[in-house]
Design a protein around this nucleic acid. Structure first.
Lengths: 167, 167
DNA sequence: ACCAGTGCTGTTACACAGTAACAGTCCGAA
DNA sequence: TTCGGACTGTTACTGTGTAACAGCACTGGT
């Protein structure tokens, strides 16, 4: 059976480590594929990794604008496009928002659990799900190019919190 | 094994029938649940069913504006919100667009195959996929409330067309 | 008959999301 | 040196979606 690669980040953890390792992995992924992680792109990636919450493009823009006055929408969107192509960042369509990818080097599926209460996002990597989709598609003669799985619900902690409220 | 409820609509079919049955089902669903399918809402639903292609909100707006001069964004978005809540229409997040739901009375999952070449959308209803997602989620203690599956690729006809081009 | 409440639509005015197109800059290769 | 390509700056715009308030019709209670 397929295994879950990631889990929800615990409410309190050494997030500095998260950021650092994400950036190191990003450097590696880029040098490996001959892509250029410029200061701007690096900075945007860093801002995205500031939390495990999905970030909106215009939030990034306003943060960025505090450092470089010239920042405009294309500044952010171009960096985001690069980061997506490089597999370093995922776009969550149902939220119009972006999250860092924990496994930039692994095959890039797009499977997310989104907690509607605390907002955090966990990335799945379930080959079984992709396989199921491919099988269903094939029955209709459909050839899959890209899959988007976005599941909304409540993470474990938020279920507890909800129960505590109604008790 | 789960079965596919819908397939891609053949390029040429009696689409008048599609529209008519969709509206009849909608009436039924609304009276059954005590919701009001007002003329405005009915008209928006009709416009959406004009094709099996996903429709953008502002396309709907401009079509609507030819009939009622007062139509403004909230006019359309409110109708769409109602139709979604009533299970008559799906929003496709990755396209910012809307399609009619073929089975408004059945349980409302949200599984789509989207052909990137011709733009048509087919709705799936695979309990096995939902079950797989629920199982993966549960392993993380996550409680699923809503799932979004949007698969991009090529439908059978468009694969043929592509092959014909490169031959 | 009157009133209050509710549900639907009209209206204005925004906020947020994303892109086109052109202009500079920098850097490495021919 | 000069050319081309990759990156960023800059302006201006289109597209997507919502807040907030106003009116109006209907319904149910008094």
């Amino acid at each position: 059976m397929a295994t879950v690669l990631k889990s929800f980040a615990p409410p309190a953890h050494d997030h500095g480590r998260c950021i650092k390792t994400a950036l190191v992995k990003a450097e590696r992924a880029c040098t490996a594929s001959g892509k250029r992680l410029t200061p701007l792109r690096r900075r945007v990636l860093e801002l995205i990794w500031n939390s495990h919450l999905p970030v909106k493009a215009y939030e990034l823009l306003s943060q960025l604008a505090q450092e470089r006055a010239q920042a405009a929408p294309p500044t952010v969107y171009r960096a985001l496009e690069f980061l997506q192509d490089a597999g370093l960042v995922h776009r969550i369509a149902s939220l119009n928002a972006f999250v860092g990818c924990g496994e930039p080097l692994a095959g890039h599926v797009s499977q997310f659990l989104i907690c509607t209460r605390c907002g955090t996002v966990a990335e799945l990597a379930e080959p079984a799900l992709s396989a199921g989709i491919a099988a269903s598609a094939q029955r209709l003669g459909f050839k899959v190019a890209r899959e988007t799985i976005e599941v909304e619900g409540l993470c474990r902690d938020c279920q507890k919190a909800e129960r505590a409220l109604t008790r």
